[in-house]
Design a protein around this nucleic acid. Sequence first.
DNA 1: TTATTGTCAACAAAATGAGTTGAGAATATT
DNA 2: AATATTCTCAACTCATTTTGTTGACAATAA
Lengths: 155, 155
Amino acid sequence: MTSGIDTGVLSQKTRYAIRAMQHLADRYGQGPVHLQEISDKQNIPAKFLTVILSELSRLGIVESQRGKDGGYWLALSPIDISYGDLIRVMRGSLALVPCASRFAHEKCKNCLEEGDCRTRALMLEVRDRTAELLDGFRLSDPISPVPAFAADEQD
Amino acid sequence: MTSGIDTGVLSQKTRYAIRAMQHLADRYGQGPVHLQEISDKQNIPAKFLTVILSELSRLGIVESQRGKDGGYWLALSPIDISYGDLIRVMRGSLALVPCASRFAHEKCKNCLEEGDCRTRALMLEVRDRTAELLDGFRLSDPISPVPAFAADEQD
DNA sequence: TTATTGTCAACAAAATGAGTTGAGAATATT
DNA sequence: AATATTCTCAACTCATTTTGTTGACAATAA
């Protein structure tokens, strides 16, 4: 029972950001890492990566230095950066709908009054549980990649 | 610590679909419901709603009848339709990234090899937990709307 | 036969997403 | 000082997706 195509919830930009941050986590404590190295190893278009890293730098989550032997490094220890943080930072919210976000709260367009909206009530619960889950995973976690699928069950 | 704007994960169309289904759930067993009624009460543009309901009808999740006193009704009991189903049907997957979807599985563009991708390993876990959560809520659930926020904590 | 109501493909405008261009600023080396 | 290196960042482009609308048609009931 399905129809639509899958665009993915996390934008390409957010996925790049996550991989870049994982890369920096791996190099934590080893001095500045070149943008070019991250671009090469993580398969991210270099120019686009400058946009992403500059943004993360402005947000204070990574630090940077210019000039020869410049580069980027994490502003915090990998254990202090959760995947929830990364997603929040990149897409503004963990919520599935704007009205269910606390931090980036915004009325959903064309919706009912918030006080009458069951979808919102549900999505608040979903957001809380999702936040709990995503904040539990941190950049320091030694995550084992999972082999590609053996075509099985449902989504 | 935030930046981006919140587009919302669930598209407007998906949100409309959910509200329309909730409306039909409330009228379950009461015969066909006019599109116009749903449009009015749920604040959904009528013409757009025809697209949505036709789609749900083609998918077999609602049934319809034309002519005078025609309309739409749920093809299943509200207790047999989960919010997970609705989201899967409308957006193809519950996963945050295409490569972490079982049903609509697809390689993420410009990513690493799947067997090497830590993000994927994580997102598989997130998908499982999200599915569990969303499939636990059903159209039959008596959800109490939550009052608008008293500006508080984080997202 | 007429009014009502759903069906559906095609179209259009707007928003979003992905990525590039290119000029500049900071740093280190010579 | 001059030069090479590396990050900064606003502006721009291009493609895709989203959000609808139009309008012709099909089924049903009175």
